[in-house]
Amino acid sequence: MTEIFSEIDDELRRERLQKIWERYSAVIIGAAVLLVVAVAAWQGYAWWSAKQADEAGTAFEQAAQLATEGKHAEAEAAFTALAANAPSGYRTLARLRAAAEAAARDPKAGVPLYDAIAADGSVDAASRDLARVRAAGLLVDQASYADMLSRLEAATNDSNTYHHAARELLALSAWRSNDPTAARKWLEMIAADETTPPSMRQRAEALQALLPPAARS
């Protein structure tokens, strides 16, 4: 008797499974197909991304070699092309290198390229600050202190990656603009910062010695 009931239960289960399959087979098959397609698409994208990164790396090395050989115009063009077409990991770095190569042949040509990077909200904060400092470095001999201050003051905070360079540039700009009070402000900030690099500290001390007596700390 037990075997009969067991056979009946098995038959009922088979009937239920058959009904479920008849009702949902299209959905099950569709889901399986989508899974296979998704896996294939992901593998294809991973392969494509790796290929793009490899090609960008090779192009970057070739552009860097042009720069090493002193072919700044060619290197700038190569880095500019790379910045337009490379994966995001290379894009900002290529833009920075293109600006550097432009500045190597003509400092005035590098400034707008650095300024464009600094103003681009899609670029990471550290790279934007670096571009801001490098542009200011190209302008320090000709820009007014007010212009330099507007460019760099926000970058002088301790939390900024390039605050040491920003402070030094502002101190130098203030000194060149005959503003000893402003120069002393930045030089004292450099001196008080325990993380100031030794070489920069020495330069700051030398500049401090050039200030008129009334402006010395």
Rank of each mutant, 00 (worst) to 15 (best):
32 A>V: 11
157 N>Q: 12
182 A>D: 03
73 A>T: 08
130 L>N: 02
109 A>N: 07
210 L>F: 10
131 A>D: 08
54 D>L: 11
37 V>P: 02
69 E>I: 01
148 M>V: 10
45 Y>E: 09
79 F>Y: 14
201 R>L: 13
55 E>L: 09
10 D>F: 04
36 V>H: 08
76 E>M: 11
21 W>Q: 09
93 L>R: 01
194 E>R: 07
96 L>M: 15
93 L>H: 08
179 D>C: 09
18 Q>K: 09
116 A>D: 08
206 A>W: 09
3 E>Q: 02
123 V>E: 00
108 K>G: 09
175 W>T: 11
179 D>G: 02
12 L>T: 11
54 D>F: 09
5 F>Q: 01
215 A>W: 05
56 A>V: 09
117 I>C: 07
85 N>V: 11
165 A>K: 02
59 A>E: 06
112 P>G: 02
108 K>W: 12
145 Y>I: 13
96 L>C: 13
151 R>Q: 08
29 I>M: 13
152 L>Y: 05
185 K>H: 03
27 V>K: 12
49 S>M: 13
68 T>M: 00
52 Q>C: 12
78 A>D: 10
117 I>F: 13
69 E>T: 01
42 W>S: 06
195 T>C: 05
122 S>R: 04
113 L>R: 12
11 E>D: 04
140 V>N: 03
149 L>K: 03
179 D>I: 10
1 M>L: 07
105 R>L: 05
125 A>E: 05
81 A>M: 09
13 R>G: 13
209 A>D: 01
29 I>V: 15
175 W>A: 15
23 R>Q: 15
172 L>T: 02
48 W>E: 12
17 L>H: 14
90 Y>R: 02
74 E>A: 12
140 V>I: 10
98 A>T: 03
26 A>W: 14
32 A>Q: 10
129 D>L: 09
98 A>I: 15
92 T>A: 06
185 K>C: 00
112 P>D: 11
105 R>S: 07
170 L>D: 08
